[in-house]
Amino acid sequence: MALTDTAPAPRAAPAPRKPVSPAWLTLPGLCFLVFVLLLPVGWLMALSLKPSMPGAFTMEGDWTIANYLRFFSQPFYYSTLIKTLWVSALTTGITAVLGYALALIIWTASPAKRGWIVLIVLSPLLVSIVARTYGWMIMLGDRGILNQALLALGVIEEPIQIMYTSAAVIVGLVHVFVPFMALCVLTSLEKIDPKVPEAAMTFGASRWAVLRRILLPLTVPGLASGLTIVFSLAISSYVTPALMGGPRSGMLTTFIYQQFAVTLDWRFGAVLVTLLLALTLVVLTSILALAARMTATWSK
């Protein structure tokens, strides 16, 4: 730098050197995702358009939609789609009610209790799903805790079959998802000024009315994200249906496992994968769109 004593001559700044954009930092991760997720999934979807041939996993053969026709023409196949949908929907519904209740319990708890409730309630979220599902198998088996308790109380004469039914699958899934739902709702609840429900009560609103008219509308965003997360996790869950519904749970994911690991009909299995993905996307976008419409009037 030169030292000058005279007043400086004003001048335009030189064109700045363009630094390398940090956007390039996404490149390694992006390459990884493209090669390990997007291309493989695309490849698999393309494979679904090749004639079914057990054992074959290459791309040879003509393009055809025969696999899709086969899926939609046989009740044994398409019933898995329907069953997956209603089991997931029921799971999501029950989870929503229980998760909402749980979120309200946490929200209204005193700060001292709150940490403990959160710890007790949310730490199961981190516990291995296999271990938790095993716990339900102990509870719900033919000679499980529930049956033994009911027998001892004389409510039933014979053990009732719960394991390997859709009910077992739903119970197991709800248990896995309730903390997720509670967290989503809680995020929304915490944005509400606690004075709003109080104010409503001073106008004579009952607790029920406060819940229905104030809390519920204000928690739509949290509820919606909870519903989407739970529904998409439910239709794609594998461990719980496989263990609690048995190999013939009739759910799409266990059917996929069979096609790829047992029957080895990968091209037909690819149809199931494609349908599962499509289902996930449709559900996600429609719930999000619905929530956006419901909150459009008051959120930004």
Partner: peptide, 11 residues
């Protein structure tokens, strides 16, 4: 979002 089982099968 992509189900785990789909990731596994695709890989």
């Amino acid at each position: 979002i992509v189900p785990g089982i789909v990731i596994g099968v695709a890989l």
